[in-house]
Computed example of a mutant assay.
Amino acid sequence: MTVYVIAQLKITDRASYDRYQARFFDVFKKFSGRLLSADENPTVLEGAWDRDKLVLMSFPDEAAYRAWGSSAEYLEISKDREAGAQAVVLLAKGFG
């Protein structure tokens, strides 16, 4: 079952976050994920939003997401993401 990962980021150190971003695709493409959106200026339609960036990804299933998220390669680059941004990350199951 397809899963979606929604990350809401508050960028706190642009240089660290940019290092993460520069290395992201080299790791991401190895794990069957699809980047659906990475928007630093999403339109807020309802409510308040105090973040700087929204990222939406999909994976074929939860196992594929977990393989990516726990891989040594991702853990290495995620140090820059953690240093450069506060994140709220959600995993949502698709239909079917």
Results as ranks from 00 to 15, higher is better:
residue 1 M to N: 06
residue 7 A to E: 08
residue 9 L to T: 03
residue 14 R to D: 10
residue 16 S to C: 11
residue 16 S to M: 06
residue 18 D to P: 03
residue 19 R to Q: 10
residue 19 R to I: 02
residue 20 Y to C: 07
residue 20 Y to G: 08
residue 20 Y to I: 00
residue 21 Q to L: 12
residue 21 Q to W: 12
residue 22 A to L: 00
residue 22 A to F: 06
residue 22 A to C: 05
residue 22 A to Y: 04
residue 24 F to D: 02
residue 24 F to G: 00
residue 25 F to Y: 13
residue 25 F to W: 09
residue 27 V to F: 06
residue 28 F to C: 01
residue 28 F to R: 04
residue 29 K to R: 15
residue 29 K to N: 14
residue 30 K to W: 02
residue 31 F to L: 11
residue 33 G to H: 01
residue 33 G to M: 00
residue 34 R to F: 02
residue 35 L to T: 07
residue 36 L to K: 08
residue 36 L to V: 08
residue 40 E to R: 14
residue 41 N to M: 11
residue 41 N to P: 01
residue 47 G to Q: 08
residue 47 G to D: 03
residue 47 G to L: 03
residue 49 W to Q: 05
residue 51 R to K: 15
residue 55 V to E: 00
residue 57 M to E: 11
residue 59 F to W: 02
residue 61 D to V: 02
residue 63 A to K: 15
residue 67 A to R: 14
residue 70 S to W: 06
residue 70 S to M: 11
residue 70 S to E: 14
residue 71 S to Q: 08
residue 71 S to P: 09
residue 71 S to W: 05
residue 72 A to G: 02
residue 73 E to D: 15
residue 73 E to V: 03
residue 76 E to I: 06
residue 78 S to D: 12
residue 79 K to N: 06
residue 80 D to T: 04
residue 82 E to K: 09
residue 83 A to D: 04
residue 83 A to S: 09
residue 85 A to E: 05
residue 87 A to H: 04
residue 89 V to M: 04
residue 89 V to K: 05
residue 89 V to A: 06
residue 93 K to L: 05
residue 94 G to R: 01
residue 95 F to D: 00
residue 95 F to N: 01
residue 95 F to P: 00
residue 95 F to G: 02
residue 96 G to K: 10
